[in-house]
Structures are given as C-alpha cells and as structure tokens.
Simulated scan of single mutants.
Amino acid sequence: MVYNHGNPCYTDRDRGDMMSLKEELLRYLEEHREAPVSGQLLAERLSVSRAAVWKAVKSLEEEGHRITAATNRGYQLEAASDVLTAQGVRYHLRPAYRDCAVLVERRVGSTNTQVKKLAADGAGGRTILLADEQTAGRGRMGRGFYSPALTGVYMSLLLRPETDSAQLPIITVAAAAAVCEAIEALTGLETQVKWVNDVLVGGRKVCGILTEAVSDFESGRTESVIVGIGVNVKTPPALFPAELREIAGSLLPASVSRNRLAAEIANRLFDYAADLPGRAYLEPYRRRLMVLGKRVRFYREGAWQSGRAVGLDGDGCLEVETPSGAVLLRAGEIRMEGEPI
C-alpha cells in the first residue's frame, strides 16, 4: 500500500494488485446486489475456475457475509448482509470519490489515532478509515465513546483543507450537517443537533463527532484535519452501559446498511469540505439546531453561566444572551437547562 502525497487516491492498478480473489468477488457481488450472478459468469469475469469461485464464496460466508446460492441462478449478497467492507463503502461513494483510500479494520483503539498515524506517513486527503469496533474510542473533553462491535459506524476521515486551526469549529458544523442529512436520506428519521457536535434522534444521542487538527509548529498552518464520527446504527438499548441508557440511542428500528451510511456521510462531508468558505452547510445545521430559543448553561471564565441561545453566526459560533450581555461561544460545550453538569 503506497500513498502519494500529491495524489491521495489509489490507482486502478494499485487496487487490482492488492485485491485477492475473495475481495474481487465481494466487490462484484456488492455491485450486483439486485440480482443473482451465475458462478460461470463470475468465473469468467474473475479469470478463475468455478471451483475457485465456490471456495471464495464459502470463505466470505465464514467471515459473516450472507450469500444466497441457488441452483441455476447463482450467488447473491442478501439484503441483510451488513459486513463492513472497503468494497461495500466504495460502491456507494460518488464517482468523484470512488478511487479514494478506504480502509476497514475489525478492531482498533481509536480510528482518529490511527488516521493521525496515516497522516504522518503521508496519506492524502479524503482517506477514510472505518472499524467494526473501537476499544478506546474518544469523544470531546477527554471522554470515551462507547463503540461495541458490529453495531455502529465508527469512522475517521482525513482532510487537508486550506485553512487554519481557527476554522476547526466550522468543520465540525459541516460534519454534523453531513451526518444529519445522510441519516435522514437513508432512514427517514428526523435528526436534531445539540451544539456543537451531538446528533440526536428522538431526543437521544445517536452520533458524536471529534475534530482534531495536525498543525505545523513554526507556521501555525493546519496540515491536516481528522474528523472522527461515531454513529450508533443498531445498538440495542440493553447493550449501552447503565450511565448511558437514559441519554444514548441508535437508529433502530430503522434499518440501514452501515456501508451505505458511511459512504453517504463521506459523500456529503467531502462536498462541504471542498468549499468551506461557501458555508453551504450552515443552513442545514441551523435548521436542526435544537437549542435556539432555549435556556442553556456553558462553562466560561472558570464558572458555569447561563443564558438563552438566540442564534448561530457565520462561523458556527453559538450566540447566547445572558443577564450581563451577549456572549459568543466559539468552542466548548453546553448543557440544556435542567441537564446535569
């Protein structure tokens, strides 16, 4: 696997060299989910014997893929098959992004930590890393992010925007808008945003976002931005730790492919990131902002203060009216009135 800093995406030749027969077969089945594909056609397309195709199918099934095999019809990935794969994600990416690096791990400590290492090794913008499970998922303010296996989309995207660290809050806003739009488009669920980085469905948090920058010490220029996104897709309520059961939720009972959801989030975030100054993401974000007009508490100058959230400025900062005057929150987090501190 070779990264080119000037061209962050894999070429078709690179990808072909990396793919095993099993990976090529999975890609083909992913691209033809709508109908069975005959073993003979697969053998011809992949330049192998039908016996080799059969063995590859069995190997994929052992990994958890659900594949229907019907006599005289062929092989077909079942609709309920939801194994997270690079092929599955890439298939749902828009053509403009389909050649970008997509990496999938079964278990990592933190996807953001892994992508920071990739960035240091020269990975280019629009690199996507996903994991089935995080053992040390990270949230804002040093908190952990609960990331049980096979139930969520845990992903980090590497961006190389032409911006400075002062613009980090606006990238988080763009990411939240992308997540909301992707969830609504694929599930029909209504989403809300709690400033600045929590996405809620039905009043429960289903997604958290952690944006981190890697900057050049001397120039202060932001070399890369890592956007970590964790979505609880099909986490049963009983699986959440006791301290999270009253506040966390998932997209259940809605059903959505994790591969497709990850790709749709990436599509929308890459679109927004291509024109951060255009601020196209501000209105979708503002429209879903649940705190406007409500009383909130925020930590400032060493103490908790309170006021009424009245607006969102052009940089994604929250405008709060307090007894002592207007306050503009550029970072940090807020609590709704009555919410524990």
Rank of each mutant, 00 (worst) to 15 (best):
L118E: 08
G137S: 08
G125D: 05
A136C: 14
A174Q: 06
G144S: 15
G122I: 00
A182L: 09
I171M: 15
G125R: 08
L158F: 08
G137V: 04
L168G: 10
Y146H: 09
V173T: 14
Y154D: 13
L129S: 04
A185G: 06
A175F: 00
Q167H: 12
L150N: 15
K117Y: 07
Q114N: 06
I170C: 04
I128L: 15
G124T: 02
T172V: 00
A136E: 14
A176N: 03
Y154L: 09
T135D: 12
T151E: 12
E162Q: 15
A176T: 02
S165E: 12
E184N: 06
T127A: 11
V173N: 11
Q114L: 08
Q134Y: 02
G124K: 02
T135M: 12
D121G: 04
Y154G: 10
L186C: 02
V115F: 13
V179L: 11
A174V: 00
G137L: 04
A149W: 09
K117A: 13
I171E: 15
G152P: 05
A136S: 15
D164M: 08
T163N: 11
L157M: 15
L168I: 12
G139A: 02
L118C: 04
R138V: 00
D164C: 13
A149P: 14
M155W: 10
T135I: 14
V173W: 10
A149Y: 12
G142V: 01
M141G: 02
